[in-house]
Amino acid sequence: SPPSPVALPPFFMRGSIIQLADGELKRVEDLKTEDFIQSAEISNELKIDSSTVERIDTGQSPNAVVIQFSVGELKAQVCVEVLVEYPFFVFGQGWSSCCPDRTTQLFELSCAKLCVGDVCVSLTLRSLK
């Protein structure tokens, strides 16, 4: 059977309180690209990667899509299956999903339409020392 798509966790709900790496608290809808970059910079374990959307296909489960990303400098090809409303943070743009209307309806989180070519914020573990 196909793997279940990643369900949408509660912290994408508008108004959710997010703690940045320096301790600052922000609402999820107020996060900026710089917040992710600066948080990763002071993290010993996490590194920001740029992940470019290469393809978006219909998923095997209802309301799911398979998104193919090209990740980091090595352009590693990674596919994830998520629900259409799952938001990704696009550099310089903010929250974006394959079905922004549904994201807004379910989570009251304003979203742009995620498109091929968009560059999303993703994380990599730094090597553990």
Partner: peptide, 19 residues
């Protein structure tokens, strides 16, 4: 009120790098 860490919002898309 629950507080979530910033990194819970960001997907891990690449395998661990050795740098």
């Amino acid at each position: 009120v629950p507080v979530f860490p910033w990194h819970s919002l960001v997907p891990f898309l690449a395998p661990t790098q050795s740098d």
